Amino acid sequence: MSSRNLRFTKMHGAGNDFIVLDGIHQDLTGISKAQWVKLAHRQFGIGADQILIVERPSREGAEFKYRIINADGNEVEQCGNGSRCFVRFVRAKGLTQNTTVQVEVAHTILSLTENPDGQVTVNMGPPILGTEKIPFTPMNLSSKQEAQATLYQLQTSEGSFWIHPVSMGNPHGVQIVNDVDHHPVATQGPVLESHPAFPKKMNAGFMQIISAHEIKLRVFERGSGETLACGTGACAAVVSGIMQNKLSSPVTVHTRGGDLIIEWDGNPEHPVMMTGPAVTVFEGEVSI
């Protein structure tokens, strides 16, 4: 069997780490799901939560397209921390000179801006709150209203949990917990991720509210497990908190890998803005 070499860049956004591949100037066709899994493996590959692929756009108005592959080899719709790394990558590689870049993802076009201080701000678009679009199926679940948010009670083998379904282009279920540092994320995350109310699975968010402008957050991501940070999870958590009248914009989100700043005015038609770091760790070449 013949092999080929792939040039890659290892990056992270608040500890959420990525393998970034230029799919414009090198051929990435024919790479199997098993090969993606091996590349993302932390012992047998490069190691990453997700693999980000830079491609030419297919939609008018976009400068690039980017695809996201989870550590389990499955392609997903959106990755907030990855989008920040994306804009740093295309600028560092000379693929664009623009400080603000329009990037096509599965459901929309994102606007990404590299700030003078090195932080990156992403216009994540409006939150998706309609149950069918998340997608979320209420079935016969118990529900309750918290201000503008409808919470649903999920029954699992680990107990029952009140969650708020929100999508930022990918499905999230946000719950408020008292002490996120000691919360059993490792056991609750997997059963929530695969709950049948979420036909495409979900990213399980565990949010501890510190004040109206500050939260702690851990996220068990579908297909990757718990990550050190989750950009879309931070956005979903802040949206949920604001809709429940428990948070006010802007909100500092403390993740295990670093801090993100999320801004949203509470209007469901207005975009969520996320600002955070994007760091290159190393570059290399791997044979597959």
Score class of each variant (00 low, 15 high):
C235L: 11
I210T: 12
P138I: 09
S142P: 02
V122I: 15
H41K: 08
I53W: 03
A62H: 14
A14M: 01
E146Q: 12
M273H: 06
A62M: 06
I24L: 09
V166Q: 10
N70K: 05
K65I: 04
S194Q: 15
L52K: 05
P171Y: 01
L39R: 07
H12P: 04
T227L: 14
E60I: 08
T280I: 06
S248E: 13
A236I: 07
I68M: 12
N178M: 13
I46W: 01
N123G: 09
G80F: 07
V191D: 02
G223M: 09
R256W: 07
V253D: 01
V174M: 12
R218H: 02
V279A: 06
D72I: 08
V279R: 03
T275H: 05
D265R: 15
G223E: 04
H164L: 02
G257I: 09
G169F: 00
R218K: 15
N74P: 04
Q26S: 11
V90Q: 15
Q119C: 04
K201L: 12
E193V: 15
G94A: 14
S157C: 06
M139G: 11
P138A: 06
G276Q: 05
H195W: 04
G80P: 07
Q119A: 10
A204I: 14
C79V: 15
V174F: 01
T131H: 13
F18P: 00
S240H: 06
V180M: 08
A71R: 00
T9C: 08
N178T: 08
L6S: 02
T187A: 10
L6V: 14
D17V: 02
R256D: 11
T131G: 01
E285P: 01
M202N: 13
E146P: 01
I68H: 08
T96V: 10
K201T: 13
G231Q: 08
T113Q: 12
L112N: 00
N245G: 06
R91I: 11
C235A: 15
V239R: 00
V253F: 07
E263S: 14
M11W: 07
P126Q: 07
A34W: 03
N74F: 13
V286H: 00
F44P: 02
L247D: 02
V37P: 00
L110A: 06
S143Q: 12
N98C: 06
R256Q: 04
C230I: 10
G118W: 08
K38L: 09
M202W: 00
